[in-house]
Amino acid sequence: MSDVILKVENLSKTFHSTNGQTTQALDKVSFKIRRGEIFSLVGESGSGKSTAGRCLIGLERPSSGSIVFFGKRMQIIFQDAVSALSPRLTIGQSVMEPLDINHIGSRSSRKEKALEFLRLVGLDESSFYRLPSDYSGGQQQRASIARALALEPDLIIADEPVASLDVSIQAQVISLFQNLRQKNGTSFLLIAHDLSLVRRVSDTVGVMKDGVLVESGATEQVYQNPQHPYTQALIQAIPVPDPAFRQHK
């Protein structure tokens, strides 16, 4: 089992609303993430992919099932970097905060470390002293990634990390993930709705619909030979960037 970093078995989550209605957000979801793997969960809004991520990191308590984590640390990156960073802390303070809380190293070594991670995500030294409001959405997302990296997690859960970013910035963030995986062997659970992005970056993909993992497998295999009708519909709906290939005449 040493190559597996996370094992999820029969994970279910039911939400109860005040008027007595229940919603089955996750229904017996099982999957494994190997070390150094980029595993993607795709599906439309309401399919339960974010709930799965939140259960893994303990932001939601699962109704049943098991989650076994074989690594040391897990971190989450949210979609909205602007609300994920405190507007009152400088970027440097935000990145140092997890180190401060965990009393890792000395004050100066923490600063050194924060600077190192800022450089890694492509932000220059001056960002350490500046407020998030001085930066664009893409830069803020990179700062929040730097903070997620600060404790050197071996698994990063990234919930729609680039959905609110421009295409050119998306590419920057995604290459950053790939570099981290290559350099540090970091594993990723990428939660996304952009199917061509998922195809590009992930080794394994799981397709969710109404709380059920309807299909999973090696990314290329799933894309080239989708088995489930829902996966087929999703793949067909990807807009092709070629006017000669209009999906509807």
């Binding site: 295409v167 050119s168 590419a171 920057q172 790939q178 195809r199 590009r200 960037p241 000669a244």
Partner: peptide
């Protein structure tokens, strides 16, 4: 789409996650 001439337009195409490159994604 068939004959883009501006380097920025090229960059937009290159950044597409579905773009087939020789290696990694090429961010602008």
């Amino acid at each position: 789409y068939s004959d883009p001439r501006h380097p920025y337009t090229w960059g937009l195409f290159r950044s597409l996650p579905c773009a087939k490159t020789n290696g990694a994604l090429i961010p602008m």
